[in-house]
Design a protein around this nucleic acid. Structure first.
Lengths: 215, 215
DNA sequence: CATAACATACTGACTAGTCAGTTTAGTTCA
DNA sequence: TGAACTAAACTGACTAGTCAGTATGTTATG
């Protein structure tokens, strides 16, 4: 296959896209470098031109995962004032990205398993948890400061929300049987309902407050 | 190692225990049959005496996982009347088993990844979801019949509860940084709070509910 | 009891295959 | 030209699974 060569940037993207697809189909260990190469009709040599090892591809894929998801969330919610609305936005973000790129989330399960073997992947995952925790804690702080709600225990709250989202990811990746839109709406609803109104003051005027709270 | 031979039942248990430990440490593909054998000082041949392949060990381990967890839950909640109390009991069961046998739950992540490659493992996982769904839906039906609460959408409710629990499992397996007891109590709390009281009768939200009423 | 005959449990060297990574020999393009 | 890039053949470490042989019961028989 001596087709015209492809520009460097594209090739790297192709390698990651191919790896993502292969890992979803066969997991990490069962995927061979040759299979990844075949996905876009390139050869093994091309992959080793861009990456020093198979593991390096996995790690770079994880980097992309973090960038494409966590950092994008930050941008998206950055423009939203109300903390409650931000929670809703996070739910919507999850719905959308699960629909758009289920392969990337399948790769997440691959990362999880790989973290058993590989310390650096494990460390990246833990860092991801810390990042999530920071985002949510910050959000809750903002909401409290703005008088939107009070949070009895921020750590618990953050952990529950992360757990719910990861649980949904797992199920969708494995069985694809959820009505995502419905589920994610429920998650936002639940998480909003868990935040009691601040007792001493009325809801700030003009606060959109998406929660269908009945009490 | 020519020690005295071990009875058939014990050996099989040993193989599963060894596999469980090895899979937690290195994942499925990275674990060699020799490593599993070494764990209890047996030889490769012994494993192949009991199992036809490495995959068969994994599948049997999953069978044990299902038996040890799902079926045990059924027994535990079987003797509890109140549906709300059963939800609490499920939370407590999760806390306990996560503390007792984190290795088995690590294996769950291995099963997830393996399901990408192996259709039979995938089918077992889906069956597990169906089982969970049945348990929870049955529980909600009972609670409604007994007048404990009403559930707007049982499917959603079941999916959310499963997601929360699996999310907690993932995080605990990977980072072990949660205060499990606290978190699991919160899950029961949340799930109970999501169940509105039946309109026609009054009971303060979050009340313990002894389950000695109604019929 | 003894011991032969059979059944079950186990061993570990070996085979056959796989696949990550390397090498070599190009091709393309600035 | 030469550096970036690609293809394809190759190497060698590694490992799932096999199997001939051994050890340890268990039962049958005198």
């Amino acid at each position: 296959m001596k087709g015209p060569r492809v520009s460097s940037g594209i090739r790297k993207q192709q390698i990651l896209a191919a790896a993502k697809r292969c890992f979803q189909r066969k997991g990490y260990a069962q995927t061979t470098i040759d299979e990844i190469a075949a996905e876009y009709g390139m050869s093994k040599g091309s992959i080793y031109w861009y990456y020093p090892s198979k593991k390096a591809v996995l790690i770079d894929l994880f980097r992309v995962f973090v960038e494409e998801n966590l950092n994008r969330i930050l941008t998206e919610i950055g423009s939203i004032r109300s903390a409650r609305d931000r929670i809703t936005a996070i739910g919507e973000h999850l719905t959308r990205s699960l629909q758009e790129d289920i392969e990337l989330y399948s790769a997440l399960v691959v990362f999880w398993e790989s973290s058993f073997v590989d310390e650096s992947i494990r460390e990246m995952l833990l860092e991801q948890y810390r990042l999530y925790d920071r985002i949510l804690t910050g959000l809750l702080d903002d909401g409290e400061r703005a008088g939107e709600f009070v949070v009895p225990d921020k750590k618990i709250y953050a952990a529950l929300m992360i757990a719910m989202m990861e649980g949904i990811i797992v199920r969708q990746v494995l069985s694809k049987d959820l009505d995502l839109a419905e589920i994610c709406r429920s998650v936002s609803g639940v998480m909003n309902r868990l935040l009691p109104e601040k007792k001493s003051q009325k809801r700030p005027a003009g606060s959109p407050n998406t929660g269908k709270d009945e009490g």
